[in-house]
Structures are given as C-alpha cells and as structure tokens.
C-alpha cells in the first residue's frame, strides 16, 4: 500500500464514522437504521475490494479500541458480543464484494445511467445480500433466535438499504468523474 492508499482507506473509514453521527433511527431490538451501511457501500464502490474492506477493518479497530464510533455512540468490545455483531463483521465482506463487483462492471465507455445501475447492483449484492447473510446467520445461531425470526427481524431494513445503495451509486459515479481513483 502506498501512502495515498493509506490516506484514502483512512478517509473512507472516517466517512463511515461520520455517517454514524447523522441521527440514527433505532428500531425495537436495538438494531438501528443508520447511514453507516451506506458508508460501507461507498467504501467498496469508490475504493474497490481490498481497500474498501481495509477501510471497514479500520472502523472495526476503532470500535475495539472502545471509541464510540458506531451509530448512537456505540463502541467497545461489548459490541462484538451483541446482536448486531454479525452485521458489523459482515461489513468487511460486504465492502469487499461490493468493490469486487464494481471492479468487474468497470466500463468507462458505458453511459452514466448504465453505470449507475451496475453500481447499484454491486451495492445491493455486497451491501445487502452478503451483509444480511452474515447478520442473519449470527442472529440465528449465536443469538439463538432461529433462522425464521432472524430473517423476519432483518427484512424490515431492506427497503431503506436499497435506497442507500441507489444513493451510494449515484454519488460514486459523480465523485469518480471528478477525481480519478483506481479500484483495487
């Protein structure tokens, strides 16, 4: 990693943290709707698989250090034992898959709507399908909730997350038009 890579990874980690300050809407059960998952999608879409996942790992390191960087001022090692730990750890894979798909779809000659649609798809597969798989499996097995109930609890967040995927894709297409960043 070059110093620029380090700086960009740190920046996207900070973006994820900063998005947690935008007031969250906590739902019953303690899983809050936050914009932080959009930050995870952005990390993958803007930086690519490896650096995107690295940015998420930085956020997780900050959480482990006890800093209140998650939405609602959560942080500390207790988070890793809580109901949302599957989603938190799933962020790493989510950013990686999102970035990987964005890399696969890479095609500068395509029109803006097509690229936006492709990036939205990448964010949905990585930031929703893969992420929910991690989160639901954690809830079902480690929190002993059972698959059906874990699925039912989580599915309420999908519409919001689809909207976040669209916004993340729109932002990424415009940002990458202004600054040249290679996805890696």
């Amino acid at each position: 990693m070059t110093t620029r890579d380090i700086s960009l990874v740190a920046l996207m980690a900070a973006v994820i943290v900063a998005l947690g300050v935008v007031p969250a809407i906590p739902l019953a059960g303690g899983v809050p709707i936050t914009l932080q998952s959009m930050g995870v999608m952005l990390a993958g879409l803007v930086l690519g698989p490896r650096r995107g996942a690295a940015a998420v790992l930085v956020v997780i390191a900050l959480v482990a250090l006890g800093l209140p960087v998650l939405a609602g001022g959560r942080g500390g090692l207790a988070v890793f034992a809580g109901p949302t730990a599957g989603f938190l750890l799933g962020w790493v894979l989510a950013a990686f898959v999102t970035g990987f798909l964005a890399q696969v779809f890479e095609a500068p000659e395509k029109s803006t709507p097509v690229r936006t649609l492709q990036l939205t798809l990448a964010a949905i597969v990585g930031g929703i399908v893969v992420l929910y798989l991690c989160g639901i499996l954690w809830l079902a097995f480690f929190m002993k909730m059972g698959l059906a109930k874990a699925f039912a609890v989580s599915i309420a967040f999908v519409p919001g997350d689809v909207a976040k995927a669209v916004v993340a894709a729109l932002v990424t297409v415009q940002v990458r038009r202004a600054v040249a960043i290679e996805r890696k």
């Binding site: 990693m1 380090i6 700086s7 990874v9 740190a10 920046l11 980690a13 900070a14 973006v15 943290v17 900063a18 300050v21 690295a54 930085v58 956020v59 390191a61 900050l62 250090l65 800093l67």
Partner: peptide, 18 residues
C-alpha cells in the same frame, strides 16, 4: 507502522469531514 498510521489518520479525518 502503516496500519497504526491508517487508524490514527481515520480519527483525524472525522472532524475534517464535518
């Protein structure tokens, strides 16, 4: 050294973004 720098930089970037 690089990993530590990344984490510290992230902390410094948050107020910059705000």
């Amino acid at each position: 050294a690089r990993a530590a720098l990344t984490v510290t930089l992230a902390l410094r970037f948050v107020p910059l973004i705000v």
